[in-house]
Amino acid sequence: AEVLAKLNTPEIKERCADLLSRYPVGQAALLEVLWLVQGVFGWVPREGIRWAANVCGCAPAHALGVATFYTMYNHAPKGKFLLQFCRNISCTIKGAPSLIAYVEHALNIKTGETTPDGLFTILQVECLGSCGNGPMMLVNDDFATDADGDVLTMKPGTKL
């Protein structure tokens, strides 16, 4: 119910109406509506997925299947800083494995884990489409080029 209260606001209703108007079929807005849910909570709670299904006029089971197919929807809260390291070929050539090992060591967590203070989560991802600037990483939604260990000393809110 708390989840629904946060989603059933006039702004979100307006956003949904705009999204639905873009496609000939409501279901097509599902990915975008799930993005809205993730925008509110930082992840997609089950209740939010059911809500999205309802908005788009598709079955909740369909929406759950879609929400779990794509890797960018989080199914549990993540750290305040989500560090996603590219481990694909060009970044590996540029030293991604040792960067990842360094960060895991410095934060004392493994890939997939969150620090106990809830600040950092480490993930390894595939090519980020910026291979000329490797090793690449994403810090939340921002691209960090030629990444090195310095990202760990950044202050919250630093623009990359």
């Binding site: 097509a28 599902l30 369909h62 879609v66 197919f69 794509y70 890797t71």
Partner: peptide
Amino acid sequence: AGAYICGEETALINSLEGQK
């Protein structure tokens, strides 16, 4: 939303339609 296979044009179309 994060799936390399969606670059394949028919997967992309399914994704555009709100499917896997």
